[in-house]
C-alpha cells in the first residue's frame, strides 16, 4: 500500500513537471510562453494581495496620523478656547471694575483727584484682611482710608511695592468714628467676628432707626467725613449707659473688585469741609 502511494506521488510529481515542460514549449496567442502566463497568473494574486495590503496599511497609517493630528489640533483649540474664555472673564472683570471705579469717582468727587485706584487681589473676610494692587508706583502710607463702591471698607496697615494690606472695618480691632447723616447721633464703629459692626457709645436718647445710614464723622482723624460706613441693623437698650447698636457695612466686601485708596485726602478738603 505504501509503495503504491509513493509510486502515485512520484508519478504525480512527474506529471506536473512534464506539464510545465510542455507549457514551456508552447507559445500563447499573445506570443509569450504559456509557462510564463501561468507563472504570472499564479504570482499576480500574490502581488495584488501585497499591493492591497500595502495600500490598506498606508490608509490606516494615514488615518491614524490624521486622527492624532486631529486630536492634537483639538487639544490646541481647547487650550485656545479656554484661554479666550479666561481672557473674556478678565475683560468682564475689568469692565465690572471699571464700572465700580466710575461709581466710586462720582461718590467722592472731592477726593477722586488724589485717590489711588487699586485692584483687589486677595480677601479674607473671616480674618478681616484684604490685599490690593495699586496702579502706580506711589507709596501708600499706613492709615490711608480704603473705599469701595458702597462706602468705606477699611484702612491700609502695610504697603510694600504696589501691594497694600488693608484692615477691613469688620476686623475686631478696627474702629471708625461714625455719625448719622444729619450728624445728630455719633458713635464708634467697632468690628466683630460676625462680620457686622458694633456701634458703641451711642447715648440712650439717640433717635436711631433701623436702616439709618452711618457715615464717617472724621473725628478719628483717619477717615474723611461724610463717607458711608454702614446701615443700622438693630438697636437695643442695654443695662449699660449706651444703646447696643449693630450695623452692616455699606460696602459689599465679598464682591469688591476695585478700591480707592484716599491718600492725601486731608489736603484735598476745602476750608468749608474742614470747618464742618
Amino acid at each position: 500500500m505504501t509503495e503504491r502511494r509513493i509510486l502515485l506521488l512520484r508519478t504525480t510529481l512527474l506529471w506536473v513537471l512534464l506539464e510545465f515542460l510542455a507549457a514551456a514549449q508552447v507559445t500563447s496567442p499573445a506570443g509569450e510562453p504559456v509557462l510564463w502566463v501561468w507563472v504570472r497568473a499564479a504570482v499576480s494574486p500574490v502581488v495584488w494581495t501585497g499591493e492591497t495590503i500595502g495600500s490598506t496599511v498606508g490608509y490606516v497609517v494615514n488615518g491614524v496620523s490624521g486622527s492624532v493630528n486631529l486630536v492634537r489640533d483639538n487639544r490646541q483649540l481647547q487650550i485656545e478656547l479656554e484661554t479666550a474664555r479666561a481672557l473674556g472673564r478678565v475683560v468682564q472683570e475689568d469692565m465690572a471694575a471699571h464700572l465700580e471705579l466710575s461709581s466710586l469717582a462720582t461718590l467722592v468727587p472731592n477726593l477722586a483727584a488724589t485717590a489711588v485706584p487699586a485692584r483687589t487681589t486677595y480677601r479674607d473676610l473671616i480674618r478681616g484682611r484684604m490685599i490690593v494692587l495699586v496702579a502706580t508706583d506711589r507709596r501708600i502710607p499706613s492709615d490711608t482710608p480704603a473705599m469701595a463702591s458702597g462706602g468705606i471698607i477699611g484702612r491700609v496697615i502695610r504697603s510694600e511695592g504696589r501691594r497694600c494690606w488693608i484692615e477691613l472695618i469688620t476686623h475686631p480691632v478696627a474702629a471708625i468714628a461714625v455719625q448719622t447723616e444729619n450728624g445728630e447721633v455719633q458713635g464708634l464703629a467697632i468690628g466683630s467676628d460676625s462680620g457686622e459692626l458694633e456701634i458703641q457709645f451711642v447715648s440712650r436718647q439717640a433717635q436711631l432707626l433701623r436702616g439709618d445710614l452711618l457715615t464717617t464723622s472724621g473725628a478719628d482723624g483717619i477717615y474723611p467725613p461724610g463717607l458711608p460706613v454702614g446701615r443700622v441693623a438693630s438697636v437695643r437698650e442695654s443695662a449699660g449707659a449706651f444703646l447696643e447698636v449693630r450695623a452692616t457695612p455699606a460696602a459689599t466686601l465679598a464682591t469688591t473688585r476695585v478700591v480707592l485708596l484716599l491718600d492725601g485726602w486731608m489736603g484735598s478738603l476745602d476750608q468749608e469741609d474742614l470747618n464742618r
Binding site: L7, L8, T11, L14, W15, L18, E19, F20, L21, A22, A23, Q25, V26
Partner: peptide, 28 residues
C-alpha cells in the same frame, strides 16, 4: 511507460510532455 510516452511525444506530438503523462497515467 513514461519513457514510452516521451518517445511518443517526440515522434507524434507537437510538444514533449502530454504523451508521457497520458501513457504513464494509463499504466498506473
Amino acid at each position: 511507460a513514461l519513457v514510452l510516452g516521451l518517445v511518443w511525444d517526440l515522434m507524434l506530438e507537437p510538444v514533449v510532455g502530454p504523451g508521457a503523462i497520458a501513457w504513464s497515467a494509463a499504466a498506473v
